[in-house]
Nucleic acid binder design. Structure first.
Lengths: 189, 189
DNA sequence: TGATTTTCTTAAACCAGCTTAATTTTTATT
DNA sequence: AATAAAAATTAAGCTGGTTTAAGAAAATCA
């Protein structure tokens, strides 16, 4: 089930025996969440790293006007948390919340350290994940600085059509950095 | 000298013996560059990862109108390349160029793989680097989506005053996602 | 040192995208 | 099925930031 999503994902990067994999899994808590449940609270110490086995999470913050703004989505096989706050065990700058019914594997900071110590090959797994994620973030910043809001939407819909279906439009708008009203206008064309 | 900048940086994350460190250093090419030299060319296969020992690099692309736009800077002890293209050995989406006289340690993709295989502890080093870099990129996207261009400038100058001194203003403007004219107007106040 | 090139500034006209506010549609709840 | 709540649409007026263009200052180089 959900455990297998993670073990298969790990196995696609690093070779582990069945016993090792089941030992690795024991470092995680597995839980299902309803829609709109908070998994991580801004301002609180960021102590947990999340892996989405099923469903969809968002990383967001509340702006000056009290509106939530989505910075990152995570769907099946994606990792999510406030990575900067997590690494330095500081208060989180973001909330993490489910966008739909989701099954999530969670690991605390101390368990994460233990896991990496006991299974150094996991360093390679996470190194690959973060190397890709950082590269993708740089590409995203490139898009932000080169596309109009209209182009942003079409380019995003082109690359991730499933997202556009699954995610409420006002959440998508805030992720793309435009207002729901303007997104609505764009779609009309 | 320059080698030491890297070995000291590695040592602040992982413990290696002196012999190991000097073996690690042999995986890299060390070279000095003049101002405005290109180290990586867009469209060409991205085969090299750069470490800045001295000076300053920029990652940039050319927009529709032919203007260079800076996506990322790298100063002393920062790593830089088009990480997504590097990992998958695809054509680069960016140029890498010196902003000033710089000393850079370079490693090819295949040497990088060899290095990680021969010294698995380097996985931990790069995992930490990329985890932080990805976290910082998410924070940067948060800023982009919550601050006005004016606030972006003051917040950036506040966090990285040296950058604002060292980097030409039109490069800083393109990094912050605004026009040099508007940046000039902001500074007047 | 003077000549050339590059970078920075100023100002006015312009527009992409926001704000506001009212209406409609969809979704969730009983 | 009826009611309430949340999400999406529409349209008009407005503004933060761009564009254009020309001049001033600073850096580079012979």
């Amino acid at each position: 089930m959900s455990e297998q999503i993670l073990t298969e994902h790990i196995s696609s990067y690093v070779n582990f025996s069945e016993e090792e994999l089941s030992e690795i899994i024991r470092f995680f808590d597995i839980r299902s969440y309803r829609k709109k449940e908070k998994l991580l609270h801004a301002e609180k110490r960021c102590d947990t790293l999340f892996f989405v086995a099923k469903g969809c999470l968002q990383l967001y913050f509340i702006d000056d006007l009290g509106n939530p703004k989505t910075t990152q989505f995570a769907m099946e096989t994606w990792w999510l948390t406030d990575f900067l706050a997590f690494q330095y065990q500081r208060p989180s700058n973001f909330y993490v919340e489910t966008l739909e019914k989701s099954t999530v594997l969670s690991i605390s900071f101390s368990k994460y350290q233990e896991l990496l110590e006991k299974f150094p090959k996991m360093e390679k797994y996470y190194r690959s994940i973060f190397e890709t994620a950082y590269g993708a973030a740089l590409m995203r910043i490139k898009y932000i600085n080169s596309l109009s809001k209209e182009e942003m939407f079409f380019s995003f819909r082109n690359s991730f059509p499933e997202f556009v279906q699954r995610v409420p439009q006002y959440v998508l708008a805030s992720f793309l950095g435009l207002t729901p009203e303007y997104l609505s206008e764009i779609k009309r064309k």
